[in-house]
Design a protein around this nucleic acid. Structure first.
Lengths: 361, 361
DNA sequence: AAGTGTTATGGAAGCGCTTCCATGAAAATA
DNA sequence: TATTTTCATGGAAGCGCTTCCATAACACTT
């Protein structure tokens, strides 16, 4: 069997307490003893048993992250922030990918197992009311990212303000007939972004028309995906016409915009000539397709989430904090108009979305 | 403090053994006793202590996945496969993202801690020789994905064959001056894909020219990234000219191809008119930019990896197995020529890469 | 009635650690 | 030299489980 501290103790001719102390850099061990023990540790290539340590010390050094649809680029980039920080701090990160809402509860339950994790990161979903008390009861640190509940720490994005700025930009470019492609209103970001859209319109004296808001997805996921975006754009194009033709659209996320742009191209609608597009997130891809979008500091949100969790562990009694990020408008080509220099690329790419069937240029 | 089985036992008026048996669905408990105990479990909202269980039962139900640069879409898609399977089987997945090679060893060491994980998935990196023995010694199941070592199970992709097919396709379209943009030759996939490239050329009686192979990245990561692809393409375009102008290029991965295409567009080189492109992976994006590429079954590779790990746990003595996937050519528009219908999209998109400065079509 | 199974149960032992307490030796003080 | 303080150390207890063994209770057999 594996080497235990008992083996080490016997081999080094000391007690198990001493061995443990050597391993944990406890001060009260003589230099010689420590050297002797560590030599044995090395010789027998001893490996501590993680769970025995954790059982005895009551710390797990592990956190879990519960994330919906984590192949969504937005989450990946946030997750990267979490992971980098976790590595830096020596924490293990258990990844729970949620594909349907029920799973979220399953993973919450799992995270609640006493001694399983030191804390939980919960992303972009409505935190189930029924778990609020459970977390409070056992005092398990929890941080909500891109979500909100008054009882817990949260990291948010000013969706409303961001959306307003996005739509304002379109208005500034002269658009009046501005549609929105949104995700499921079950999600808070979708609701908030729509509110921002509505506000910007009102501000400019443009009437909000609910028939200009397109939500699709047929219940599949939460609507923040390429297919939903594609479907919505299809509908938009089919329904938009006549003198009140929609000339610009605000899309609730880059991923949707990807699908939407593809559909537009397939239907011969040119972007930005026929339709200006602004969306939300600034995932890596957005740059590639020259999408104008509202940037969220995803990596930073991820690492901050972990920091907040640690702070919470240190001081469980502190009142819940909320950190809000204000998204930043990144102007690229998809909105047309007076294009200001791309804020990411030093030189502008020449990638265009052209509706021609064959060669162009 | 938290509720333990002792509390349950006292409360239900039974012994701890009986409680444990109830919780674990052991057969030899009477129906009434079980009901009585489970009622108490519910009433006290008992949560088992994960690490105590694990310490006593010697099973962790956890595996770790060591993945380089996991924001790379290729890995994400593989990881999704792993995660889905893990969720299905009730395993916890610890994610170790590696940003530089040293970290890999750190995470290997960590995974080796006795009792920490039941098995390890190691992705796309050279498995360090110095850890071979350690894994064998403690008999920790290990599966290599997109990597190989004779001592362990592995899941591979026939990189050579895939590359050959990719280049053959270009040759079939009439190209003779075919360059390659590769990643660091320190990685096995890069070496194998280059060999496939060379083979296809030889097969067609075309001389291999090392000045037609472009590798860049300046040591940053392993070269499988957008920036490296962009840099290589820049060099290719600058160096290619005269009568032996390169008319097609095989790029070692989609991610690199993204950067390369961007650079081409910026330099006014049209794809596919001026330069045909075929690459490798078929990440989700490839469809979006109409990239012809060799598809790897990423999700399947991920879930198979976990299955293999389980098989290995069951039978530690079985000889190492190797499963190889043959990538499949997906023809889209980036290679020009006689375009066959896209195998993913029912109808072809119209997204084009046009080198024009402004509107086109 | 005595013997043989069968089933349900209690609880000790043990998983491999950390931590605390007691102890003995050495150093510092009077 | 006698006494206190400090330091290093050994090892028991305990973390919360699973599992095994012993036992009691009961139903069958002959």
């Amino acid at each position: 069997m594996a080497v235990t501290i008992y083996d080490l103790a016997k081999e080094a001719g000391v007690g198990i307490g001493t061995v443990s102390r050597c391993l944990n850099n406890h001060p009260s061990v003589s230099v010689e003893t420590r050297a002797k023990v560590l030599a044995v540790v090395k010789r027998l290539s001893y490996q501590p048993h993680a769970y025995a340590q954790r059982l005895a010390s009551k710390k797990t050094n592990t956190i879990s992250a519960i994330i919906p649809y984590f192949t969504n680029y937005f989450f990946i980039q946030v997750l990267q922030g979490v992971q980098d920080k976790a590595g830096e701090l020596g924490f293990d990160l258990i990844l729970y990918g949620v594909n349907d809402p029920q799973q979220a509860e399953y993973y919450l339950r799992r995270s609640l197992h006493r001694g399983h994790v030191d804390g939980v990161l919960f992303f972009s979903m409505k935190f189930p009311e029924s778990y609020v008390q459970k977390f409070q009861q056992i005092n398990l640190p929890l941080v909500l990212v891109d979500a909100y509940h008054p009882a817990f720490d949260s990291i948010r994005v000013k969706n409303r303000e961001g959306a307003t700025e996005a739509v304002r930009h379109l208005i500034k470019l002269g658009h009046r007939n501005i549609a929105m492609i949104n995700a499921s209103l079950d999600t808070q970001p979708a609701r908030e972004r729509m509110e921002g859209y509505r506000l910007a319109l009102e501000e400019a004296g443009i009437a909000f028309r609910s028939d200009r808001v397109f939500i699709s997805g047929g219940g599949k996921q939460d609507g923040f995906n390429r297919e939903a975006g594609k479907a919505s754009m299809g509908e938009l194009i089919r329904r938009s016409g006549g003198r009140e033709k929609v000339s610009a659209v605000f899309i609730a996320s880059d991923v949707q915009a990807m699908g939407a742009m593809q559909e537009a191209a397939e239907l011969g609608v040119r972007i930005p000539e026929d339709l200006a597009v602004v969306s939300f997130d600034d995932i890596e891809l957005a740059q590639h397709v020259q999408l104008t979008t509202m940037r969220q500091p995803m990596h930073e949100m991820g690492s901050l989430a972990l920091e907040k969790l640690l702070a919470r562990m240190k001081d469980p009694a502190a009142p819940p904090t909320v950190t809000s990020f204000l998204p930043e408008l990144i102007v690229r080509k998809s909105c047309g108009g007076d294009i200001t220099p791309d804020l990411i690329l030093p030189s502008l790419g020449r990638i265009e979305l052209a509706p021609t069937g064959g060669e162009s240029g």
